[in-house]
Amino acid sequence: MSLKRKDLLSLAPLSVDEIRLILETADSFKEVTGREIKKVPALRGRTVVNLFFEPSTRTRTSFELAAKRLSADVINFSPSSSSVVKGETLLDTARNIEAMQADIIVLRHSSAGAAETLACGVKSSVINAGDGWHEHPTQALLDLYTIRERGMAFEGLRVAIVGDVAHSRVARSNIYALTKLGAEVRLVGPPTMMPHGVEKLGARVFYDLDESLEGVQVIMMLRLQLERQGRALFPTIREYARLYGLTAERVKIADPGAIVMHPGPINRGVEIAPEVADSLSSVILEQVANGVAVRMGILYLMSGAN
């Protein structure tokens, strides 16, 4: 069994078997990251290019570490992220990279669909590290891995995803993956931040956080992008934090043993109270650790001869 795909652009088309294969493969790499010598020669001689049009130290470093631990050569490209970076540049940049024999390109871009556009234009494998509001597949996969590592089964699992769902690529990827695996997904946030028709993707929508948390086993908090305040999506940060911030009292409403997740970076005191972020139920740092193992697994599975 293997991943018979040239690219990883989205979790929507992945089968349950493919998702399970990625998670199982990540197990082996979790073991490698626990060793003294955290390196295996599996991708020796391959070139992985991190093409990040949007700045992101966290994700980029995670991919870089993953590639290096597989003994691949890593190149980091961060084309100037001026607000007018056009797709023309994307295609031309990509062709240049391809001419340098890049085996795998990891792309982060502010336009939804950029990864798909790139993948159609180059022979290299393309991994979507976040395209606009659309998807962030590797983040959702490491979220799944973290849940699985905690011994939770996905079938029937009650997961609440809280925050600006409409503008969140992490939310979208997780909705696709979790519903596919049989989890019950609850989306929580103000109506202005719920995408149109999202119930049709198999999720339940709640506007009241307290109500939504009953019986929930996984609480996934999304980052509130503070710069969005100007666009009339919510009146003030104060009101948002009061209605949708995860406090210690709210965590008690959920299942005992519930875990708290967050893709980072966190706004302490806004969407998540500091004591919750630092509590035992928080698996935020585990997510980061698992990110490297999961990305190693994905790079490994995508590195077959093309």
Partner: peptide, 19 residues
């Protein structure tokens, strides 16, 4: 319209595009 680039609906939600 506010920066929208396609019809607002299920497809725009799935594609992550402003509607």
């Amino acid at each position: 319209t506010e920066g929208g680039c396609m019809n607002e609906g299920l497809v725009s939600t799935e594609l992550g595009l402003p509607g």
